[in-house]
Design a protein around this nucleic acid. Structure first.
Length: 271
DNA sequence: ATGGTGGACCATCCA
């Protein structure tokens, strides 16, 4: 059997419902993980997603900002949301697939939205950057405590960091830009390696092939300029590495009318 | 070095 998992920062799930519908019609993921839903739980468009075939839905939303959701064709045995940095921000939700998922039963999928970090890459003067670094520290502590990669698990989300040189359009130009500063990229890489996750996209598309998942709204003619960054990630526990068949960034969605600034990232696992 | 755009929601905050 195949398990197809997509992560996508949609930047408002209600505004982008038609885009999500069009994407799932084309890509047919079994599990769709969304970030920046910007939607309180009591206003989440549940019935629209059920109509698209996603009967199993786990949401962690709030008014106006952040918010994550997992839409699934397969039932959950368990869902769970974690909080970070003593804030009530909706930045994580996890699901564990139920026995109906057959070979994929028991797989836990963690869906994260890591803080963007503001504009100035100095925690002493920019509280948002300090929050981002503290969030990464708590992620490190979480993996040390729970060892999630020791079980069959997938970690996806908008991590708001482009770790490698060819994850950005110009490495040298972006060394001082939040999302690609050494303090962030080294912390992300240390966390991933210590926890043991495999970077699924880079496993199949190793450097120096450029891979981007985000293009700024502020860039005119974004497609021709192609000043992108790889901010969205799919990581696999080592026990799932051998199931990895494909990884794909659906760049097309960025060219649709009134798009999200992020493109979906999809992996196919084969059991 | 600067300013550029977009979403939520009702004054700005956040990306």
């Amino acid at each position: 059997m195949q398990l197809v998992v997509t992560t996508w920062n949609v930047n408002s799930v209600r505004l982008r419902l038609d885009h999500v519908a069009r994407f799932v019609a084309e890509s047919k993921p079994d599990v769709l993980c969304l970030q920046e839903t910007k939607c309180p739980d009591d206003r989440f468009p549940l019935s629209a997603f059920r109509s698209l075939g996603y009967a199993h839905i786990a949401i962690n939303g709030q008014k106006g900002y952040h918010g994550v959701a997992v839409l699934s064709r397969l039932p959950f045995a368990e869902t769970r949301a974690m909080g970070f940095c003593d804030k009530n921000d909706a930045r994580h939700i996890a699901v564990t697939l139920g026995k109906e998922a057959k070979q994929a039963a028991g797989i836990t999928i963690h869906n994260f939205y890591v803080p963007a970090g503001g504009d100035i890459p100095d925690p002493a003067v920019n509280p948002r950057f300090a929050h981002k670094l503290a969030f990464l520290d708590e992620l490190m502590a979480w993996t040390g405590r729970e060892r999630p990669a020791a079980e069959p698990s997938i970690l996806v989300g908008d991590l708001n960091i482009a770790p490698y040189e060819t994850d950005v359009w110009n490495h040298k130009a972006l060394l001082g830009v939040v999302s690609h500063t050494p303090i962030e990229t080294s912390r992300l890489e240390e966390w991933r390696q210590t926890a043991g996750w495999v970077d699924a996209v880079r496993h199949l598309k190793p450097e120096p092939e450029p891979v981007y998942t985000w293009w700024s709204y502020r860039s005119p003619d974004w497609a021709a300029a192609n000043k992108g960054r790889r901010l969205d990630h799919v990581w696999l526990a080592p026990s799932l590495q051998s199931t990895l068949q494909e990884a794909h960034v659906t760049r097309d969605t960025r060219g649709w009318e009134r798009p999200s600034d992020h493109a979906p990232v999809t992996v196919t696992l084969d059991f």
